[in-house]
Simulated scan of single mutants.
Amino acid sequence: MRVDLFGFELPPERIALRPVRPRDSARMLVVHGEGEFIDRHVRDLPDLLEPGDVLVFNDTRVIPAQLEGRKAGGEAKIGATLHKREDLRRWIAFIRNAKRVKEGDQIVFGGGVTAIAEARHADGSFTLFFEGEEPVEVLLDRAGTMPLPPYIAGKRATDERDREDYQTMFAAKDGAVAAPTAALHFTDRLMRDLAEHGILSEMLTLHVGAGTFLPVKAEDTEDHQMHAEWGRIEPQTAARLNAARAAGGRIIAVGTTSLRLLESAAREDGTIAPFEGDTAIFITPGYRFKAVDGLMTNFHLPKSTLMMLVSALMGRERMMAAYYHAIEAEYRFYSYGDSSLLLP
């Protein structure tokens, strides 16, 4: 399909630069397969789901993966955004001012953190080898900042509030360089209300990569190369999800990251298998969903892979109408913005 079919005009003032407080006071647009759009709030979620439904969250934790430094022995400023872990000391990173970096160069970041640019990849990224004996997580805590999306970072500086704001309450496993933002709206109060209504919850892990922010440069979706991300679904989790669905419950993915991993792990009969490894699944209209029955997600960028995903779930014309409704109704967009509940 043509990528421009997923475009729309968003007024700049609709881009949220900070989340609302409390988190569950964010607005939520409810979109069914047909009928009117319904304007609610995230705190209303217990009334919008049924006992036995399962919300599936991503428990990845965002690391301070944005680094600023200089090439050793020179004045060239180098920026690095870590993208995907290769081993205990190596990360693939997108490099700013990459034309000044050669394989074998040492880059000196803040806090005495250094890395060797070991290998350049076809997309222009580099494998960075972090020097020293301290775990890379310790080095990043010392030298890195939270990797806010470009549409926020381009309008204001990262600050200490983002260390909390850009992390979900479920964050437990280090490795993401972008937040699974649909889950940013949840609070302890909301989780208690959901449990009291008989709505279940499960966790999986998908370490979101910086590639999620890369624009689709191809003119046709068939020519776009999707980035890979590492994920895991434990055997016990898969078994409980299958049992809940067999009992009549719906599987509602909280965020496109959870959805993509569930669909990567789905068998042809719709059951979910345990999973561990990389996934580069690219979901576009025409895809047959097997594992999920609904999706809670924020509002996405025009012509993005995530706009294509929600269009695959609900239909392109339905989603375009929903987005125009959200713009007209002054919903807040993107990572720190409002939410939607999509129920085909």
Rank of each mutant, 00 (worst) to 15 (best):
N97I: 03
E50G: 08
G249M: 09
M28N: 04
L214E: 14
R23L: 05
D165V: 01
D269M: 04
A93C: 06
Y334F: 15
F275R: 09
A98M: 04
P150A: 01
E134P: 02
G35Y: 09
H224P: 04
G35F: 11
I283M: 11
T158L: 10
W91C: 10
L313S: 03
R61S: 11
A122L: 14
G286N: 12
V56R: 09
G112I: 05
Q236M: 14
G74L: 08
E68W: 13
Y323K: 01
D123N: 14
T271M: 04
H32W: 13
A253F: 07
G33Y: 01
S125L: 04
A326R: 04
G112L: 10
Q236K: 13
W91Q: 08
A182Q: 02
R43S: 14
G69M: 04
D162S: 00
E317Y: 03
E229Q: 05
A243R: 15
A178G: 08
R96T: 14
A228Y: 11
I281F: 10
A195M: 02
F289L: 07
D24S: 00
D47K: 13
G286V: 09
E160F: 03
A291P: 10
F126H: 06
E222W: 15
D338H: 00
H207W: 05
A195H: 09
I281S: 07
Y324T: 13
E222S: 15
F282H: 14
G144D: 02
V42N: 00
L148Y: 06
S335W: 06
E202T: 03
V42P: 03
R120M: 13
F109D: 01
G112F: 07
S201I: 05
P51Y: 08
E13G: 10
K217V: 03
K303I: 13
T187S: 07
A183E: 09
E317Q: 14
L88A: 15
G248K: 01
G231S: 07
Y166D: 09
H197V: 09
L194Y: 10
S25A: 14
S201Q: 14
R27A: 13
I281C: 05
E13I: 14
G277P: 12
D269G: 08
N242E: 12
T305D: 01
L200I: 02
E229N: 01
W230D: 01
A329K: 15
A119E: 15
D105Q: 12
R260W: 10
V31M: 10
G337I: 00
D53M: 06
D39G: 03
F170R: 14
F299W: 03
G198S: 11
R14P: 02
A218T: 11
R142D: 04
A322F: 04
D220N: 12
R89V: 12
D188V: 12
G337P: 06
R232F: 12
G69K: 01
R100V: 03
Y166Q: 09
P302V: 13
G154K: 06
L204E: 01
D193G: 14
F109G: 02
D174R: 15
L190Q: 08
L139E: 04
P344F: 00
G315I: 01
L148A: 00
H83V: 10
Q106A: 11
G79M: 08
D220F: 10
A326K: 05
M319K: 07
A178K: 08
